[in-house]
Design a protein around this nucleic acid. Sequence first.
RNA 1: GCGCCCGUAGCUCAGUCGGAUAGAGCACAGGAUUCCUAAUCCUGGGGCCGCAGGUUCGAAUCCUGCCGGGCGCACCA
Length: 588
Amino acid sequence: MNLFRTFQAQIVDVIEDLIKAGELPEGLDTSRITVEPPRDASHGDISTNAAMVLAKPAGMKPRDVAALIAPGIEALDGVENVDIAGPGFINAGLSDAFWHHQLGQILNSGTDYGNSNLGDGEKINVEYVSANPTGPLHVAHARGAVVGDALVNLLRKAGFEVTSEYYINDAGNQVDQLARSAHLRYREALGEDIGEIPEGLYPGEYMIAIGEELADTLGDGLKDAPEEEWIETFRNVAIERLMDQIKDDLAALGIEQDVFTSERDLVAAGKVEHVQELLEARGLIYRGVLEPPKGKAAPEDWEPREQTLFRATDFGDDTDRPLKKSDGSWTYFSNDIANHLDKFQRGFSTMIDVWGADHGGYVKRMQAAVRAVTEGEGELDVKLCQIVHLKKGGEPFRMSKRAGNFVTLRDLIDELGESGKDIIRFIMLTRKNDSQMDFDLDKALEQSRDNPVFYVQYAHARCHSVLRNATGVLSEADLAPEKLAGADMSVLSDPAELELIRMLANWPKTVEAAAESHEPHRIAFYLNDVAALFHGLWNKGKDNVQLRFIDEDDADATRARLALVVGVATVIASGLQVMGVTPLDELR
RNA sequence: GCGCCCGUAGCUCAGUCGGAUAGAGCACAGGAUUCCUAAUCCUGGGGCCGCAGGUUCGAAUCCUGCCGGGCGCACCA
C-alpha cells in the first residue's frame, strides 16, 4: 500500500464524516479524488484535489469546500500543517517523524519494500519474444525480451499472478523452409556439395550443426528420399534445436519464461476449428471479396478473390480479415486467435503482448478478435517496441562476421563483457517502449554520469562502501537493517536528507503506477532520481561535515545516517530486481 | 489513399493515466577534492510543449483538423 493511497482513503473518510454531519450534500462521487506529491516541494508533502473535484456537484466554491475539509486532514496522523492554495488544492506537510517512520519500514521490509496488493492476485498473461524458431535471436528481439520480462517482474511485485509466455510459430510455410534448409545441410554433412543456398531457405551457419546431427542420427537413407518422408522429422529436430538455442540466449539475458505454447499443437488440437465455430455461431464469418489497398500500388498478383472473412470491422478494425488461405489452410491470424482464446480459457482475461513495431498493423485486428471471441470479457494490451539502432562511438554499428548478417543477441552480450546482461537490460529500459532508441556500445561501457547503468550501480556501490567503512564505528551486528530500523532518526533533519527519504518512500507508488500503466521504463527513471539525490547528499558531506554518514564520535548519529544509506541501497536493489539487473556492491 | 506510433530546451529524453511557475542528462559558462570512491557534486543561461481550434475551474496530457517524421497496409509469419 503506498502512502498516498493511505491518505486518499483517510481523506475520503473525512469527507464522509462531513456528509454525515450535514456539512456537505449526500451522494458526492469521491472516486476522482487523488492524493499526490506536489511537484513543487514548497507546497508540502501531499496534495489533494478533493475540494476542486467536489465543488461543482456540491454547489460550492472550491475554496469553501477546502475550508470544510482542511481541519479533518490536519487531524490525521503524521500531518503537521495544512494549507489551501491555488484554485483549491489542499496541501499538507508531514512531520519529520512520519518520514523517519517510513524509513524504518523500508529497513524492515528489505527489497520486499514496494510490494503491493494492487493486483489482488488477478491473473495476467504476458507474451513476449515469440520469435520464429528459424534462427538465433538478434538485437531486435532483445528490447521486447527485456521489456516483457521486466513487465512480468513489475506486475508480480504489484500483486498480480503473472504467467510469462512464448508463442512458438512452428506452423506454416517458414518452418517447412527451415526443414528444407536442414535437409540441405544434412546432405552437405554427408559429403555432398550443395553450392549456394537457394533463395527462400535459411542460409545461416547455425544450420550446419543441425545437418550434421541429422546425418549422425539418421544415416544417409533420406538423402534422395522424397520430401514427404523426411520433412516432419527434419522440421521437428530443427525447431527443437533452435528453440534450445533461443532459450539459452534468453537465459543469458536472465530470462526464463513459464510457458511455451506451440502453434502447431494448437492447430492439431483443433483449437482453430473451435475458433471458427465460435465466430460462425455468432455470425461473425462470411464469404466475401476484399477491396485492394487504395493509393498504394496494389500487389503484383492481386486479384479479386472470395475469402473466408472475419467481421473485424464490427470490433473496431479498419477492414475485415481473412481466416483462410486460398489453399484452404488457416492464416497466421486464425491460429493466433486460437492462441489468445486458449490463454483466455486458461483464466487470463488480461493479456499483454509485446511485439516489434513492424507488427503495429496487426494490433487492431488481434484486439478485435479477442473482443469477439471472449464476448468482451478478455482484454489485450499490446506493447510495441520501436527499433533499436546499435552504435559505437556515435557511428552505426555493424558486426558483420558474416556478410549481410544481423547482429545476434549473443554477439551483443559478448561484446559488452561480463556485465553484458545487466547493461542491456538497463539500457533497454531507459526509453519508453514506443520511442526509438540508440544503443551506443561505447557509452554503455563508460563509467560516467552519461551512462545510467553505471550511475545507478555506482550509487548502490557507494552505499556499500560506506557500510564497509562504518565497521570502525559500529559492530557488524549493529549494521543489520532491522537493528538500524530501531535507531533514533531525529538527527535526519536536513532538507537534503528528508528529500531523499521522501524519494525512497515514493517507491511503492512508483511500482503501482508503472504496473498500472504497463510501463517498466519508469523504474529506470525513478532509480536515476534516487541515485541523483544520494550522490548529491554525499557531496554535501564534503562542505558540511555534519552531513557525513559516519561520525566517529557519535555512534547514535551514525546509526541514523546509516539507516538512510541502507534505505537507499535497499530501494535501489529492489528496483534493479524488477529490472532484472544484479545490484553491485563494488565497482572497481 | 487508409491505419497506428511519435513531435517537449541546441542534442537525447522524462512528465506520476486533466493539476499549481513544464523537468532531468548531455553540451555551454563558472565553481567544489588535506575529508566515507571527484567514476561525483553545486551554480547559471536557455521553451509558442509541431500549428490552429474545441471540451472545463484548469490541457504538454482529452477531442477535431492540418503540418512534419517512423512503421504497416489481401491468401507472409
